[in-house]
């Protein structure tokens, strides 16, 4: 804690105290979001393994194209890294790096959002075309939601830097957003890895709905 460390205007505590509190809070939120996203992973892998009523696969085995998942994932990783790079610069007093980093980050996130929407529009199936289609839609939809929220945060950092609220001694918000963006990429990764590694269901012998299979 430096001697010149500013104090929080509302509580009068040193900003580093507030920052460490915020950091823990963001960690807790990330834990919560992780289990939320785990339920997507559970849904995907469980429905994949069950293949209920032989209706896992989309019609005509038209699986989603895989590269957009990875492209969006890479975009989010880069957004996180850009924010982190800017934040580290800001801590050294380099305001230009903060502005550049947060702007790049925001633009990447907007691009990821646009890409995500484009992907949703071009899926070769609708949300009602079987279990694979349902969960894949949800991966894409939830990621779109997260990215939209995150781009608000990233733009907010850019804007706050412009307004002089993010300074060398009080840059913690940028660090928190960088942390959040890494997690965001984690969510996209779950979707990408699921759709890439699990396509054809291993269960080819599922019972027909409402009937008893003859053994």
């Amino acid at each position: 804690m430096s001697v010149t460390e500013p104090l929080s205007p509302t509580t009068g505590e040193p900003v580093s105290v507030v920052a460490s509190r915020n950091r823990l809070g963001v960690w807790f939120i990330i834990i919560s979001c992780t289990t939320g996203s785990l339920s997507l992973l559970i849904s995907y892998s469980y429905l994949w393994s069950l293949n209920v009523n032989s209706a896992w696969a989309p019609p005509n085995n038209a699986w989603a194209t895989l590269w957009p998942f990875w492209a969006i994932f890479v975009g989010e990783i880069l957004a996180g890294l850009a924010m982190r790079w800017g934040w580290k610069g800001m801590e050294k007093g380099d305001r230009g790096r903060m502005l550049a980093g947060s702007l790049i980050s925001s633009l990447l996130l907007i691009a990821a959002f646009v890409g995500q929407v484009a992907q949703i529009m071009t899926f070769p199936f609708g949300p009602s075309d079987g279990a694979y289609a349902s969960v894949t839609f949800w991966f894409a939809l939830s990621n779109a939601g997260w990215v939209l929220l995150s781009s608000f945060l990233a733009f907010g950092i850019f804007n706050r830097t412009l307004a002089g609220k993010i300074t060398a001694t009080n840059a913690s918000h940028a660090g928190l957003v960088a942390m959040w963006l890494v997690w965001l990429a984690g969510v996209a990764f779950i979707g990408a890895i699921c759709t890439t590694t699990m396509q054809e269901s291993p269960n080819t012998n599922s019972p027909d709905f409402g009937n008893f299979q003859e053994p």
Binding site: N51, W56, A131, F137, F209
Partner: peptide, 13 residues
Amino acid sequence: INTSFYVPAQGGS
């Protein structure tokens, strides 16, 4: 939106 997470006839469980 007519997904089928829990609709067994369409692959849900």
